[in-house]
Design a protein around this nucleic acid. Structure first.
Length: 432
RNA sequence: GUGCCUGUAGCUCAGUGGUAGAGCUCCGCUCUGUGGCAGCGGUGGCGCGGGUUCAAUUCCCGUCAGGCACCCCA
């Protein structure tokens, strides 16, 4: 379609079309995901794209950009309720867990989801305003570190199934209700001493979200960071034990992790374990540095925050768009449309009229037939058949239509045989 | 949200202050019952809006979209 003849005929910023060729890759992605869910016993759940805005404000917390600045708001007709396009999945899954009384189900309750999410961010590589995630969540009676390891394992295996190599699990613990406030106090106190030396952004972070201070990439802030109190040293005994145990599981599973003391997460509801999936730089490859394929962590307080019974949980999300970008850039076994094997060529009105019925007959025999019924010339149709790379061309002309026969042509050798239409399906199957 | 760069055909890209071309693709013909090759022809475009100018695709401004960095995150 011409771009200029009409105004505004384009997708809006940060949102794109997924074209047929790319859909093959998405299909593969989803089939691997379903297989994974099946194997690790995560059951699929779908929640609405639109939720009460309070859901996200409460869970993700004020001070997070995702909720404060990037949420798409939706006007609800005839109601004062503020709605939002979901910016992430965990809050909705927790809401559904409570709403449908899943606490009555045998635990752990393991749920999986996929679908689009919305954040009004500035688009960049692997960053869209409508983006797609898959997610895994595990609700359990106790905050067993085994489940932390298991969601990480599942996600890692999933990336492995897509042939993505060099995945490293960045992992940290940010403590619990008991130890985090104390740690934050120390952190803030430390940074206050250096306030005049840190960047403007960090001054903001100091007030709003001190954990993120550890994330700053500015050189002068990095220097200061070296002396900052680290999360790990300030964990309470329980958190320390939990974290140690998670790491032991990862080692047992031989998963490559990197103890990253500065890893913190953008959403407020996390406690204890937090992690992200990143890629090791590869020689000769455009770096995916800083690109997180996914992340997650433990959120032991979220269920009770929404009025449910205290239920520890751990979960993660992977960015589908990002994973697929990596696959495309690395040119990893990108699926192509399976080659069609049979092409029907018609000549003349009678044959054309009978063609649709003939194709239906073959469909019943599970034979996929392609055609170009809009064309008339035999030569052109053969050319198309050739371009499609089919194995057999069926030539159906005036004479054949009248005699209820058809010519089967082997496209590679040019050998032809005439068979009665009655036995066509059988003969085709012999050839392919 | 901030800064820098980019925008010519479906795709990859030339080019110019006097309204544009190539390769590939697509469609047709040579070839109306036999494809791969080749030849010929055709469709189709200066992102949008405004300004400067006799004249703007070209210069300027705005806008939209894309890319990169920051920010943030998946």
């Amino acid at each position: 379609m011409a771009k200029s003849s009409e105004k505004n005929v384009q997708s809006v910023k940060g949102m794109r079309d997924i074209l047929p060729e790319e859909h093959l890759l998405w299909e593969k992605f989803f089939s691997n995901f379903r297989e994974l869910c099946n194997f690790y016993n995560f059951r699929l759940i779908s929640t609405p794209l639109v939720e009460d805005v309070a859901l996200f404000q409460k869970s993700s917390g004020e001070g997070s950009d995702v909720v404060d600045k990037e949420m798409y708001m939706v006007k609800a007709k005839g109601s004062s309720k503020q709605l939002a396009l979901r910016p992430e999945g965990t809050a909705s899954v927790v809401r559904a867990y409570i709403q449908h009384g899943m606490k009555q189900q045998p635990h752990p309750v393991k749920l999986a989801y996929y679908g689009p999410f919305f954040r009004h961010d500035k688009p960049q590589f692997g960053r869209y305003r409508q983006f797609y995630q898959i997610g895994l969540e595990t609700f359990s009676a106790k905050n067993n570190p085994l489940y932390d390891a298991q969601v990480i394992l599942a996600a890692y295996r999933f990336l492995e199934s897509l042939k993505i190599t060099g995945v490293v699990i960045q992992i940290n613990s940010i403590g619990c209700k008991a130890c985090r406030p104390k740690y934050l106090k120390e952190l803030v106190a430390y940074y206050k001493k250096h306030k005049k030396d840190i960047c403007g952004d960090c001054k903001d972070r100091l007030a709003k979200n001190p954990l993120r201070l550890l994330d700053c990439k500015k050189d002068k802030c990095k220097e200061i960071k070296v002396g900052a109190p680290m999360t790990f040293e300030n964990l309470c005994t329980e958190c320390k034990g939990h974290f140690k145990s998670v790491l032991e599981y990862l080692e047992e599973l031989q998963l490559p992790y990197n103890l990253n003391h500065t890893l913190v997460r953008g959403l407020d509801y996390y406690s204890k374990t937090v992690f992200e999936f990143t890629l090791e730089p590869v020689e000769g490859e455009e770096s995916f540095e800083g690109l997180s394929l996914g992340g997650g962590g433990r959120y032991d307080y979220l269920v009770e925050m929404f009025g449910g019974k205290h239920t520890p949980a751990v979960g993660l999300a992977l960015g589908i768009d990002r994973v697929l970008e990596v696959i495309k850039k690395r040119e990893l076994n990108i699926p192509t449309r399976p080659k069609d094997k049979v092409f029907l060529i018609h000549i003349g009105e009678l044959a054309k009229r009978k063609s649709l019925v003939l194709i239906e007959e073959l469909r019943k025999a599970k034979i996929n037939v392609r055609e170009a019924l809009g064309k008339e010339s035999l030569g052109v149709q053969l050319k198309i058949a050739d371009k499609l790379g089919v194995k057999l061309a069926l030539i159906f002309g005036q004479k054949e239509a009248f005699e209820e026969s058809i010519i089967i042509r082997n496209m590679a050798t040019g050998a032809q045989e005439t068979v009665p239409i009655r036995s066509l399906a059988k003969t085709i199957k012999k050839h392919i």
